[in-house]
């Protein structure tokens, strides 16, 4: 965007093909619009972008480092490479790291067959994880009347944190701890069931890409997530303002 808030139209190259973009779009948005496949996990349309999962890394001509497509704004004449051997290798490795971090036992997970992590593993051609599994010990918080939090499945994408803060405005969720010890918490690391600030809206559950957050009393097949409401919600809110 220019200083006076005017939106411009740019032309850029994605994998050698010319595409047009609005100056307020990210590289990821333009790629998706034009049906280029770029894997993502922390990104969700309707939430702020944080560039944390590092799956959407792309090459931009003239840039020494790889850039996350979700937080990189388009610019005139930009040349983006969405996939090559190096990027594919990094994406695979990053996904393998996610698998190795917690206890992702797909076969007995509430999100089996409708999990973004599981989907991506197949899409990226991962049939085994080369880095050793860490098998950490994590508890399950089932104190909430409607929902369950299972840290064993969490990938720390922080979609729950952002949706609760940015959309619901409750900010029940946050992250505590550093590095490999980091985990999502409700309120000041209190059981979810005792969180007075939780409005029980279930947005966090519906944006969770994996089986970390799920609804109680539903079978695996029923535990599908519905995150399509977000872009509508944010768009309608913008119109009102």
């Amino acid at each position: 965007m220019t200083a006076n808030g005017q939106i411009k139209i740019f032309t850029l190259k994605i994998d050698g093909k010319d595409v047009s973009a609005r100056s307020d779009q990210t590289v990821l948005q333009v790629c998706r619009e034009n049906e280029y496949f770029i894997p993502t996990l922390c990104h969700l349309e309707g939430l702020s972008n944080i560039g944390a999962c590092r799956l959407c890394m792309v090459e931009v001509a003239g840039q020494r480092k790889l850039l996350p497509a979700c937080t990189t704004m388009v610019s005139e004449g930009m040349e983006v490479t969405t996939t090559n051997d190096k990027l594919a290798h990094y994406r695979k490795m990053t996904l393998e790291l996610i698998f190795s971090e917690r206890n992702h036992t797909c076969s007995v997970c509430v999100s089996n067959n409708h999990c973004e992590l599981q989907y991506l593993s197949q899409k990226l051609g991962i049939n085994h994880i080369r880095v050793p599994y860490r098998f950490p010990k994590f508890a399950v918080d089932a104190s909430h009347p409607y929902f369950i939090l299972d840290h064993n499945r969490c990938i720390l994408c922080t979609r729950c944190v952002r949706v609760c803060d940015e959309i619901e405005g409750a900010h029940v969720w946050d992250v505590s701890g550093r590095g490999i010890q980091a985990k999502v918490i409700t309120e000041l690391n209190q059981p979810w069931g005792s969180a007075d600030t939780c409005t029980q809206c279930g947005k966090c559950v519906n944006v969770c890409p994996v089986g970390a957050l799920s609804e109680k009393g539903r079978s695996v097949a029923e535990n599908t997530k519905r995150s399509g409401f977000l872009p509508y919600l944010t768009a309608r809110r913008k119109e009102k303002i």
């Binding site: 992702h104 036992t105 076969s107 997970c109 089996n112 067959n113 599981q118 593993s121 197949q122 049939n127």
Partner: peptide
């Protein structure tokens, strides 16, 4: 087997 199977399938 990429298109045929996956973890948990």
């Amino acid at each position: 087997l990429t298109s045929k199977t996956r973890f948990g399938a």
